[in-house]
Structure formats: structure tokens, C-alpha cells
Design a protein around this nucleic acid. Structure first.
Length: 504
RNA sequence: GCCUUCAUAGCUCAGCUGGUUAGAGCGGUUGACUGUUAAUCAAUAGGUCCCUGGUUCGAGUCCAGGUGAGGGCGCCA
């Protein structure tokens, strides 16, 4: 029996097993919010129903104590979940004391240090369930479309694109690296199966301290034979649409816990705008408007709005502080105002940081040099103008990987595609069409000064039945972060690994 | 690697131009209250102000170095 099944047992006596997430008490009643992993249910434990011993035990329960409560299910629309349990019996597995995570706000460092316990809180519960839903939806989509899941190796012997961002391990006395992409193997597997996808961990030793980088993350890499870049973009679009719609449908409770504005996700049904690199540069530099908006003016406006909001918050804080200092306020009101001030200060900190960054971003967009790759801030500036994901294709070949196919009509460009998520989440998908010609590839490998011998197996794919083929890589954590609208990808994975973080 | 912000009670934070015994809320403990949703109310315990050195009659506050953390850039999903 669990809290999700209560609606089938109204008026019946049942037993729930779980953890005490909160407790309130008065002289003859104790209220316990019971969390069982599925959901929550408020349990009412009355002195008369339980007797002195059990009632006193109920009173002594600390947060996160593990218990089993038997009682009658009562429908009550005021309650979270819609039901409550009028207890007739209580069994305590363990009475927990001094649980470190209270229902108040905590700082990031403290919470991450207690990640093993933090996972129990409501918000994390919602995020992990959405992550699960996304994983399932991804498998579902590819399986329905006839893709075969095949796993690429995690140890790799060669460093295809430099060793600086690879983790080195000892493999029977030889250096081995943890995979940073299974793509080349994906191509080999696609030639065996037609359409495949990998779903596995990826490791990058980038010393990045940003809200969108992890050292260990999960990547989904489909690869399709007989597929050009445009068919690839079609696949990416229907894939993302399918996953987001699945979450909207299946995770209404979870999205609500996160306070996610779902109208911003429903725009997924729109056709994703597609721009060539050339067009995207014009938009970025403010030389071309889109949707009646100019990128530079939009950021300029953001700067002004942010400054105005900062002023507003400062004033609000001062007023509340003055009101408290003036005295005569009831303790409850003081408490309320102080909490409000805390939240406002939090927002203020965030806004002040934005205000430090925005002018840099504006500057970087203004002075963007044609031919360069887009930086994180450029992506933010671009996507600021759209409410659904956008795709950018045909990149200068110099800045793309050696295996990227050149546009036959204009060899200055490589047929890569990046998908940028809205709301500042940046690149969630990177992909493209792969080079089919052995000659071109050999030339590229030389140009990138890569060791030819380790790519012989890869070149075999072009020697024996080379066909046009494409694929892409999706960062699961970035997708989860965007769908849940989280500040940082470290909340999207149970035990995050990022620069400087290895425990717990 | 570069830039930037920060470190005060178990937790979240206040502490002004340096000045007596360092404060609040939450959490803990004790008590009050039949219905609370981060309950409320009263009382109570709880401190190496990150570390080292310096300036000063006097440093939580100023300066230098170190350590740890947040965020941004580069790089990327």
C-alpha cells in the first residue's frame, strides 16, 4: 500500500510505511506528514485513538523517523494529495534525531555535502522523477522508431581530440581514457544495424565552474545510416518534442512541485526555427532582427530591467527592515517579513550577478568575429529571442570536428547542427552529417594532427560500404535542467560529479 | 588558465565610518494550545567571527598571503 493508491481505499483501514517529513502537535493531536517515496499523506494521530504510550511515541518522533501507520483513509481536498489518514496504530522502525536538513532554506554547499539525504526532499523527488520520465521517453521514442540501443565502450585507448579534457586511468599498465563520446563507435554500429543509439555515461575533465558543466554526465547518441543533415534535424525535432510532451503529460505533479511554468514548455509543438551559421551571426550581432526583436537591444533592455528590479528590491528590503525595527509587530509578522527579506536578498544576489555578466555578454555579441564558434554567452543572447529550441547548421568547417561532412555546394561549411534550448539553457544537442569519403577524412586527420594508425578501423567504415549518415548527441542533464528550469545541472543527477566535487 | 563575488551559532543571515559583554529567524530542549500545513506562543542552551601574519591603544570590521566555496569566460552536451 502506498500514498498513490489512497483514492481506491476511501473509508477503509490501511497501513502506510514511510518517513516523517514533518510533524506538528497540540495537546491531544499530532500531525505527521508521511513521505513514502510515491507521494505524501498527512496522518492524524489522536490521543484518544492511540492511547498514552503510542501518542507519546508519536510526539517524540524526529524528522525522517521511519514508521508504519495504520488508519482510515479520509477524503479531504484541502490536503496535499487530497487525502488524510486517521491513525489507529503506530509502529516505529527507528526514531531519528537531529536530521540535518530542515524545512528552511539551505546553502548549496551544505546541501551538496548532504546529497545522500537531500535526495529525500520534495524538490529533488520531483526532479529525479522527471529525469526518470525523460530517460524512459527517450528509450520509448527510439525503440518505436526502430533504433537499436547499443553500448559504446567506456575505456578508450586513444585520445581522438586531445588529452587535456580526458580522465586518464591505468589499463593493465597502459594509459586508457574514459570516454568523452561514443560517436565513432556509434557510426560503426549504425553500419551494422541501420539505426542505433547509445545511452551511457560520458566523462570530461574540463575545469569548468559553470551552471551547465559536469565531469560525469549521461549522453544519448543516435546514429542513422542513409540520413543527411536535414533528415537528422527532422529527427532531433520530433525527438525533443516527443520527450517534452511525455513529461508534460506524465509529470504534472512533479512540474507543479517545481513551480514550472508549463506554457514555456508547450511551445515545443512549434516548428523549431532553423538558421545557418551565417544567419545566426547576423542575428547575434544585431544586424538582422528576428520576431521583430533585435538581439543587442533586447540585452540592453534586460540590463535596464535588471537595474530597475534591483532598485525595487532594495527599497522593499529597507521598508520591511524599517517596519520590523519600528516595533509593535507580532512575532508571526516579524517572522514572515524576515523570511521575505531573506528571499528578496537571494534574488538580489542573483540579479547583481546577472548585472555583472550582461554587459560582458552584450559586448561579446557586438564584437563577435565571423568564423568563431559561439560561446556560452552568445548562445544565451541568441536564444533570448525565441521561446522554443532553435537549430543552427552549416558551421565554418575549421571549428568543427574532423569527421564532419563538408557542404558539397559550399565547402567552407561543415554540416554540423547545434540545438539551443530557450530560457538561457544553451546547447543541449550537437550533431551533424558525417564525412563519407576516405580521402577527405584522411586529409582532415592530418590537418588536425591526429594519429592516423588509431583511426584505421574508423576508415574501414568508409572502405566497406560507405553511406551518407548522421547522428547527434544529447546531454541528458542539460535537457533535465531545461525542462525543470533549474539553476544548475548538479541538481539533475543523483550524485553529481563536477570540478572539485567527488563526495558523497 | 583568466575575471569576479563571498566565508560570523547545527542551518540561513544581520553586524554602518574599527570602540564595552557579537545579534535575529529557523532547527534542538522544556512548557502552553483539538485541526496544523515551513503551525503559533513563552522560556532555554548553543560562538576558535575560515587560517596565518600585519596596521592600531583597540580588529568580526582595515591591509597582505593562504585555504574553501559561489558565478562568469575559454572549452563543451
Amino acid at each position: 500500500m502506498n500514498t498513490k493508491q489512497l483514492k481506491h481505499h476511501i473509508g477503509q483501514s490501511i497501513t502506510l510505511k514511510g518517513w516523517v517529513s514533518n510533524r506538528r502537535e497540540s495537546k491531544t493531536v499530532v500531525f505527521i506528514n508521511l513521505r513514502d517515496g510515491q507521494g505524501v499523506c498527512q496522518c492524524i494521530l489522536g490521543l484518544e485513538d492511540l492511547g498514552d504510550d503510542l501518542f507519546n511515541m508519536a510526539k517524540s518522533l524526529g524528522q525522517e523517523s521511519s514508521v508504519s501507520i495504520t488508519g482510515v483513509v479520509i477524503e479531504d481536498p484541502r490536503q496535499v494529495g487530497g487525502f488524510e489518514l486517521h491513525a489507529t496504530d503506530l509502529m516505529v522502525y527507528q526514531n531519528a534525531k537531529d536530521y540535518p536538513i530542515s524545512n528552511k532554506e539551505h546553502g548549496v554547499e551544505f546541501l551538496i555535502d548532504h546529497r545522500h539525504l537531500w535526495l529525500r526532499s520534495r524538490r529533488q523527488w520531483a526532479i529525479m522523477r522527471i529525469r526518470n520520465c525523460i530517460s524512459y521517453a527517450i528509450h520509448n521514442f527510439f525503440q518505436k522508431e526502430g533504433f537499436v540501443q547499443m553500448d559504446a565502450p567506456i575505456f578508450t585507448g586513444n585520445a581522438a581530440e586531445g588529452t587535456t579534457d580526458l580522465f586518464e586511468t591505468d589499463y593493465y599498465g597502459k594509459p586508457a581514457y574514459l570516454t568523452q563520446s561514443g560517436q565513432l563507435y556509434g557510426e560503426a554500429m549504425a553500419m551494422a544495424m541501420g539505426k542505433i543509439y547509445t545511452f551511457g555515461p560520458t566523462f570530461r575533465a574540463e575545469k569548468s565552474k559553470t551552471r551547465r558543466h559536469l565531469s560525469e554526465f549521461w549522453m544519448i547518441e543516435p546514429e542513422m545510416a542513409f540520413c543527411d543533415i536535414f533528415e537528422n534535424m527532422d529527427t532531433i525535432e520530433s525527438f525533443l518534442r516527443c520527450v517534452v510532451q511525455e513529461v508534460l503529460e506524465k509529470c504534472t505533479d512533479e512540474l507543479q512541485v517545481l513551480n514550472r511554468d508549463t506554457t514555456q514548455l508547450e511551445t515545443i509543438s512549434k516548428t523549431f526555427p532553423r538558421f545557418s551559421y551565417d544567419e545566426a551571426v547576423e542575428i547575434l550581432k544585431g544586424e538582422k532582427d528576428v520576431n521583430g526583436q533585435n538581439s543587442l537591444l533586447t540585452i540592453q533592455q534586460d540590463i535596464e530591467d535588471t537595474s530597475a528590479r534591483i532598485e525595487e528590491i532594495r527599497k522593499d528590503i529597507l521598508e520591511r527592515e524599517a517596519a520590523i525595527a519600528a516595533g509593535g509587530m507580532k512575532k508571526g509578522a516579524i517572522n514572515f517579513n524576515q523570511n521575505k527579506i531573506d528571499t528578496l536578498k537571494q534574488e538580489l544576489k542573483q540579479l547583481e550577478e546577472d548585472l555583472r555578466n550582461l554587459p560582458q555578454w552584450l559586448n561579446s555579441a557586438k564584437n563577435f568575429e565571423y568564423g568563431n564558434d559561439f560561446g556560452g554567452s552568445d548562445e544565451t543572447v541568441l536564444t533570448r529571442l525565441f521561446d522554443c529550441p532553435i537549430m543552427i547548421y552549416d558551421w565554418p568547417h575549421e571549428i568543427k570536428a574532423f569527421y564532419m561532412k563538408r557542404n558539397p555546394e559550399d565547402p567552407r561549411f561543415a554540416r554540423g547542427v547545434d540545438v539551443l534550448a530557450p530560457e538561457g539553457y544553451g546547447e543541449i544537442v550537437g550533431g551533424g552529417e558525417r564525412e563519407t569519403s576516405e580521402e577527405w577524412l584522411v586529409e582532415k586527420i592530418k590537418e588536425h594532427q591526429l594519429p592516423m594508425d588509431v583511426f584505421q578501423w574508423y576508415l574501414d567504415l568508409r572502405r566497406y560500404g560507405s553511406v551518407p549518415h548522421s547522428g547527434f548527441g544529447l546531454g541528458l542533464e542539460r535537457l533535465v535542467a531545461w525542462i525543470c528550469k533549474l539553476d544548475h545541472v548538479r541538481e539533475t543527477i543523483p550524485f553529481p560529479r563536477y570540478y572539485g566535487r567527488l563526495e558523497p
